[in-house]
């Protein structure tokens, strides 16, 4: 791995965070979860934020995902200054620009896959017909075109995470934040999910950021941002990226998502 030089780039970064400080008050004690983190991530990147538990990586993800706001510092998401936004405006940003994938999937049980995928579109004010169409396309693009009506609790772990990924991409976000996305999966399903992320990034150009403690997971991405004690300790390009998809020749194209993105 080699040091990446600070990118000199005229493109607008998807993530442009400067000197992010996050301080929690726990009773009388102040805890500095982040002590001046600066990070830029550009469209189309496949990157990971890696650190042990307690390093501040979750806090960073929450701020990058607009679930939380920094104490000081500036954060522009897709060129939008999100530091001063209200809760409702943040909700709208999350809805339009960010797709979350969680370790524990967080699907609505006893709800069909397609309705799970539709949820963000409901809050985005998309009409029912278009919602259905886009949700089906998203599910097809993750290989669950034949599981539309299955309830979430009737699907395997890998399939559930695919539904969650479909839910994350259905809004065509600028960014997907995946928090330990394979943490609850066996290695085979985990590999399938990694493959899916790599394909989405490769073929659809979706920006994907993994948040993980696992070096192996991080090695599936092309850039690893290490964090420890609330500070960035490394930002390296991955030389020998692990390709999760078994054989590029077998990877199916994703015509439906492409059509949807047009």
């Amino acid at each position: 791995m080699t040091e990446v030089k600070a990118p000199v780039d005229k493109r607008v970064p998807v993530i442009d965070a400067q000197n992010i400080v996050k301080t929690y008050k726990m009773g009388d004690i102040e805890v500095n979860a982040l002590r001046g983190v600066s990070v830029r991530i550009f469209a189309g990147e496949l990157a990971s934020i890696m650190g042990p538990s307690g390093s501040g990586k979750t806090t960073l993800m929450n701020i990058l995902g607009c679930l939380d706001q920094s104490t000081t510092g500036s954060y522009k998401l897709d060129g939008v200054d999100v530091d001063k936004l209200s809760d409702d405006q943040l909700a709208s940003i999350r809805n339009r620009k960010i797709g979350f994938v969680f370790q524990s999937f967080n699907l609505l049980r006893r709800t069909p896959a397609i309705e799970n995928v539709e949820q963000p579109l409901i809050y985005g004010g998309i009409g029912m017909r278009e919602r259905r169409e886009r949700s089906r396309a998203a599910l097809e693009s993750v290989g669950l075109g034949d599981r539309l009506k299955h309830h979430a609790n009737e699907l395997s772990g890998g399939q559930q995470q695919r539904v969650a990924i479909a839910r994350a991409i259905v809004t065509r976000p600028s960014l997907i934040l995946a928090d330990e996305p394979t943490g609850n999966l066996d290695s085979k399903s985990g590999a399938e999910i990694m493959c899916l992320f790599q394909r989405l990034n490769e073929e659809s150009g979706i920006t994907v950021i993994f948040v993980t403690h696992d070096q192996r997971i991080a090695s599936h991405t092309r850039r690893v941002i290490s964090i420890a004690d609330g500070q960035i300790t490394g930002d390296v390009a991955v030389e020998d990226q692990i390709l999760a998809c078994p054989d590029p020749a077998v990877v199916r194209p994703m015509p439906v998502l492409e059509k949807a993105k047009r």
Binding site: L67, R94, N95, F100, N106, Q119
Partner: peptide, 16 residues
């Protein structure tokens, strides 16, 4: 609670 958290994460406002 988790469902509420998820809904907020995917864009539900407090009003919703």
């Amino acid at each position: 609670t988790r469902e509420i958290g998820l809904r907020k994460a995917i864009g539900a406002t407090s009003r919703a």
